[in-house]
Design a protein around this nucleic acid. Sequence first.
DNA 1: TCCGACAAGTAGCGTTCCTACCTATGAACG
DNA 2: CGTTCATAGGTAGGAACGCTACTTGTCGGA
Lengths: 113, 113
Amino acid sequence: MNAQALHGHLDALLLAVLERGALHGYAIIEALRARSDGLLDLPTGTVYPALRRLERAGHVVSAWSTVNGRERRTYELTDAGRRALADQRTGWREFSATVGRFLDSGHPSTASS
Amino acid sequence: MNAQALHGHLDALLLAVLERGALHGYAIIEALRARSDGLLDLPTGTVYPALRRLERAGHVVSAWSTVNGRERRTYELTDAGRRALADQRTGWREFSATVGRFLDSGHPSTASS
DNA sequence: TCCGACAAGTAGCGTTCCTACCTATGAACG
DNA sequence: CGTTCATAGGTAGGAACGCTACTTGTCGGA
């Protein structure tokens, strides 16, 4: 499940990660991987453009911070970003409930992972 | 939520609807709308091509049935389609659990619908 | 007869994400 | 001192997916 199906939810995921505190791009990727047990292993070519989209949209702001003489662009949620995240959460719940009505039913089979 | 976010799950939805019995294209659209309380209102231009993709993939078979002199192409799940649906269900559960880990947390707020 | 609802279909487009590259810094190693 | 690796950021191009808009055709009612 290499994020092929993320369509439309990538931004929400990024905002959710940043909700816990500002991070730079690479750290965001690592956070996603860690918090998803390695299921979400997004390439930089996916995340960096997405972050810039979010910045253009005003959902995050970025700043260069120099750590160990290493330039890292740290992204932080804006107020609008927080609102957007709330919206995305609502949208996600609606979406997953709707699709789940068709796909969660049937044979539960699994039960445990 | 006009299905912008369906990406990758449309096929699964269609298979799930057909699981309950063969239907023609238009009826599938109505079934989706009905079973989702109107949230899933897919245009024909989305559903018809998808059904033909599913047929090319061997997940459904279609047959013309003439009802009142009206030609209706009725789609039916194949065995492979049933297997595909099971796979899609698994994929959906994994996906929704993973994304949900980021988006379902936070403020549950809802409680009632 | 003409119009609207049903039914199927097609063409072209925009969004979204991925693959594959490129650049640059700092540390380790020879 | 130069090479190589891991970290970190970035871009270009393309593929997949679904949407909008349009077309065709039948049937029933005004």
